[in-house]
Each structure stands twice: as structure tokens, then as C-alpha cells.
Nucleic acid binder design. Structure first.
Length: 507
RNA sequence: GGCCCGUUCGUCUAAGGGCUAGGACACCACCCUUUCACGGUGGUGAUACGGGUUCGAAUCCCGUACGGGCUACCA
């Protein structure tokens, strides 16, 4: 009986894909998959002046990276195409005309200059931004204020014009939002929004209802910033297709930055990514950093986004995509905006790295090490190294700091931490360690540690005095996993080489 | 200015009339660790305010304050 759910994400390809955008995709996707429905991606490219080359492809790459693949899209096709609004251009005018004929919309001939003049002329302290609404429309040049003959004449002569919705004067529009419940608006306070632009492209307001209808969308999710224009869309639905055809709406809470709606500026200012992946503005060449390049795992990214405004009612916080699909429900989405906390975001990533199998991490870690100029030719070693250090990596590039010394001898050693307390006894001790290691038949961490400590005891040296120098010999500084684990993985030859080399520097 | 939405630790949140208001991040302390992390234990820390309704309100209602969004031939 109930229709198969169809949801859609409708970005405009004007730049990088924002955190909030990805979360909207995610909630759409989760809802669709949870309820056995379809997830449609539609490109809202009705503003030709804002066309940005590469932005659409970028969006697809982002979705690919996070693994939220649409069932229908300009790229994947589907039975309701085309999925790019610019390619649907011829469809829209008839609906706008239909509204004019029914008396719900009208032609408006005002030029941008005239509109600007109106805004200036009627601007007062009480009303800083005058609207093109029922109080003003008879003072403007449109098919309501002009005679039929004048209107026809303007139309016939090909005068540039738009079609505006005629908002009723005394009506209350209300609907039930899936997240915030009953919401209502007084139509006398809403302006006569443009539905069809002078270039025959629809505005968002017309396009969203026409396309949602034509694409048989059952549930429409979007950011809360759209709430104020909901009455326009609802009226269009009512006049064009009937309210019983209208999808159910859910206005998602906003993701906030330190001051208001999170913007890419916030990212630059406070040092965290806002876009899913790196985005370079083709005009300015300005690069905005993305979560992927910052070193986030896509699974972690999805996970942290899901929990920004939603929870399953338990204390569980780490979810795989499948678990999210299973647990997701819109009525557990918060209605209040959520401030983005980068520290918590990093914690999610750390959890995912810690819990990941070393083998699963191997390809991406290898890429990172190689990008930093290291050569990795022993895959088995790499896997062991990852297993050893992943607990201390929060972001993927941390693997370079934590594991780089396995693949490259440390360029500089922290000799200052050793030299002041260095003496002949230690020299002799390490000489003996070298002899012992050279003869050691087995090369294994516990064995090495036992031998090391035996030699220390025999030389009346406390292990604590030589452990740190040993570490610095191998890794260059005071960091890394257990020294003997490091030595074990480094191998006999390399370990001894590093001891000898360091000895010459410490003396 | 107008309209709309919102308000529980610094942050993300749980608790849909009945508990010492719970968890997580961050922070602090201790333990583990002869490095740094991981891990473990504990701690600091919140119902914006004022009125109702009720035997009883974080929870329901009203007002105030504060925050956010919108107010384009942009989405």
C-alpha cells in the first residue's frame, strides 16, 4: 500500500561539497536504504551565472569517496531523467503559465533597476528590506497592475519578464515537518517569489516542486535554511499537483561553526576542513582543504556526520554504514542546530584507525608514505608496522611521523637528550650489545630485551639509563612503540647499523 | 525591522511528568608504561530566566532573554 520511498539530494554545482551537504546526502541515503527505497541525485544548475566548471564532477567524486552512491543521477542514469535541471529547461514554463492562467501567478516586467529603486524607495527603519508582496505589487509593472491589453502588448513585443507567484493575502499555510512537527506561516508576510526567470529558467522554488513531482519523490529532506520558503513550495504543490501528492518534508538542523552557519571561511580561520575533499576554485585558484586529504577515513567521516544531530538512543557511537542503515530513523534527528567540534571529529577518526585491520589500512598508508618520499618495498613489513603504530595515529598522515623511521634512517638524532649523560660505561655497554646482537641466533623482541637487560645488569647499568639512548639511536627521538618491537622489525643488520652510527655521534 | 526555527555540562547528546539529570569529546588527577600513545580508575562541569498546570516538572502551556536561519530573476 505504502509507496516505495524515493528521496533526493539536489546540490547546486557551485563549489566544494560542504559538511552539511554530505550529512544531508547521508540522511537521504540512510532513509532510502533503511526503507528499501531509491536515492536520487539531481543537479540544481538553474543559475547559469553561477556555473563552476568541475563542481559537478567533484560532487560525484565526493559521493564516491564516502560510498554513498545514488541509484539515479546524471551519471548513473535512471527512468526519471534528465537529472540535470538545465537539461529540463523546456519543462518548466508550462507549469508557470498554468499558474498564471489559474490566477495564482502573474507576469512581472520590472527591470533589475526598477526593483532596486523600489527597495530604496520603500526602505524605512521599520522595514529595512521591502518585499515584492501584496502591499507593493500594484505599484509595480506586472499583469496585475497593468491592463490586459498592455500586458499582452508587452508580451507580444518580447519584453523580458518573469513569472511571480501571487501570495494569497489572508491564509495560513501549515504542514507537518517530520523533525519539528507542525509549522505554520501567514501568507500575507511572504513575498511574491519569482518562479520563472527572464531566461526561462525556473528558480529553485518552481524547479523543486516540478521535479519532485515528476521524479515521484516521496520524502524531501533539506537544510533548515529552506524553512522560510516552504510556504511558497507548498502553495505550488497545492495549485499544481495537489497536496495529497506532496512529499513529506523534513528540515534538517544546521551545522554551525563558531559563529553561525558553518562556512568554508570558518575552516580556514580555525584550522579544520569543511569540505569533503580538497576543492580548488577554478577562478581564484584558492584551495580549500578537505577531510579526505586531511587524513580522515571515509567510514569515520560518515560516522561522525551521522552522529552530528542524530543518535540511536543508546550510548553507541561507533557505527559502520550498515549499522547506520539499520539504526537510522528520522524521528531521532535533533531539531536544534549542532556546533561542529573538530576535536570530537578527530576522535572518531582515531577510533576507526585503531579498530581497522592493518591490512585494510595498508594501501592508504602506503600512499601517504610514498607521497612523503619514502620507498616501501616490503608489504609484509608495512603491515606489521601499521599494526604496531596505529593506536597512536589520529589522522592518516600521523603514520609518517609514527612509522617513517622503519623505512628511512632518521635524518637527525636527538643527541642533546643523550650527550650530557653519556660516558664510557655506556659506550662499552653498547659495544657489548652489538657483539651480542651480532651473535644472536633469534631476532625477536622478547629475546632482545632479555639479552639487553642481562648485559646491563652485568655492567651494573640500570636499564633506564640506556633504554632512552637506544630508542634515540633507532628512531631519532623520544617517541614510538616499544623499542624492542622496533628493533625486531628493523632487523639485525639495520639495528646494529643504527647503533654504530649513533655511537659515533654521541661520543 | 519582520517572519520562522531553536535553547540540558565548553562541545555532541540521553532522560518523551516521578532517579544522586546518564554517556561521549575536551580538560585535570592517579594507575599502567624505564619514551610517546593506547588502556584503566576517578574528578571538574548543564536543565537560560520568570510565571503557570500538576501531589510531582529538564519534560506540558505562556511570556522574556539569548542563539540561529530567511528576508535576490542564488541555491
Amino acid at each position: 500500500m505504502t509507496k516505495r520511498p524515493r528521496v533526493r539530494f539536489a546540490p547546486s554545482p557551485t563549489g566544494g561539497l560542504h559538511l552539511g551537504g554530505v550529512r544531508t546526502v547521508l540522511y537521504n541515503y540512510l532513509f532510502a536504504k533503511k526503507n528499501g527505497g531509491d536515492f536520487v541525485l539531481r543537479i540544481e544548475d538553474t543559475d547559469q551565472s553561477r556555473y563552476v566548471p568541475g563542481a559537478e564532477e567533484y560532487i560525484f567524486n565526493c559521493l564516491d569517496w564516502v560510498g554513498l552512491t545514488p541509484d539515479e543521477s546524471p551519471l548513473h542514469g535512471g527512468p526519471f531523467g534528465p537529472y540535470r535541471q538545465s537539461e529540463r529547461k523546456p519543462m518548466y514554463r508550462q507549469y508557470a503559465e498554468q499558474l498564471v492562467k489559474a490566477g495564482h501567478a502573474y507576469y512581472a516586467f520590472d527591470t533589475p533597476e526598477e526593483l532596486e529603486k523600489m527597495r530604496q524607495d520603500f526602505k524605512t527603519e521599520q522595514n529595512p528590506s521591502p518585499q515584492y508582496d501584496h502591499t507593493l505589487r500594484m505599484k509595480m509593472r506586472n499583469s496585475l497592475s497593468l491592463s490586459e491589453a498592455e500586458t499582452q502588448q508587452l508580451l507580444d513585443s518580447g519584453t523580458r519578464h518573469v513569472i511571480r507567484i501571487k501570495m494569497p493575502e489572508q491564509e495560513t499555510i501549515s504542514f507537518t515537518d517530520m523533525i519539528r512537527g507542525e509549522v505554520s506561516f501567514d501568507t500575507s508576510l511572504v513575498d511574491d517569489k519569482v518562479l520563472l526567470k527572464a531566461d526561462n529558467m525556473p528558480t529553485y522554488h518552481l524547479a523543486v516542486v516540478v521535479d519532485d513531482y515528476l521524479m515521484q519523490i516521496t520524502h524531501a529532506f533539506r537544510g533548515e535554511e529552506w524553512l522560510p520558503s516552504a510556504p511558497v513550495h507548498i502553495l505550488c504543490w497545492k495549485y499544481l499537483f495537489g497536496l495529497d501528492q506532496m512529499p513529506q518534508w523534513a528540515h534538517l538542523p544546521l551545522i554551525l561553526g563558531p559563529n553561525g552557519k558553518l562556512s568554508k571561511r570558518d575552516g580556514a580561520k580555525y584550522g579544520f576542513p569543511v569540505f569533503a575533499m580538497n576543492w580548488t576554485d577554478p577562478k581564484t585558484n584558492e584551495l580549500t582543504e578537505g577531510f579526505r586529504e586531511k587524513g580522515f577515513l571515509p567510514e569515520a567521516f560518515i560516522n561522525l556526520l551521522a552522529l552530528l544531530g542524530w543518535n540511536d538512543g543508546t550510548e553507541k557511537e561507533i557505527f559502520t554504514k550498515e549499522e547506520l542503515i539499520n539504526a537510522f530513523s528520522l524521528d531521532r534527528v535533533h531539531s536544534a542546530g549542532a556546533k561542529f567540534d573538530y576535536e570530537k571529529a578527530k576522535w572518531f577518526n582515531h577510533e576507526w584507525i585503531k579498530n581497522a585491520d592493518a591490512s585494510a589500512l595498508k594501501p592508504v598508508v602506503k600512499t601517504i608514505l610514498e607521497e612523503k618520499g619514502l620507498t616501501v618495498n616490503d608489504e609484509a613489513l608495512l603491515e606489521k608496522v601499521i599494526g604496531l603504530v596505529k593506536d597512536r595515529c589520529t589522522l592518516l598522515p600521523d603514520f609518517y611521523e609514527q612509522a617513517g623511521f622503519f623505512f628511512q634512517r632518521p635524518a637527525v638524532l636527538d643527541t642533546e637528550s643523550v650527550k650530557p649523560k653519556w660516558n664510557d660505561a655506556k659506550n662499552l655497554f653498547f659495544a657489548e650489545v652489538i657483539r651480542n646482537f651480532e651473535l644472536s641466533p633469534v631476532w625477536e623482541a622478547h629475546e632482545l630485551e632479555a639479552n639487553f637487560k642481562e648485559i646491563a645488569a652485568a655492567n651494573k647499568i640500570k636499564p633506564g639509563e640506556v633504554l632512552m639512548p637506544f630508542r634515540i639511536m633507532l628512531v631519532g627521538g623520544k617517541f614510538g612503540p616499544h623499542v624492542f618491537d622496533i628493533a625486531a622489525l628493523l632487523g639485525k643488520e639495520e639495528t646494529i647499523h643504527r647503533i654504530k652510527n649513533a655511537l659515533s655521534l654521541f661520543a
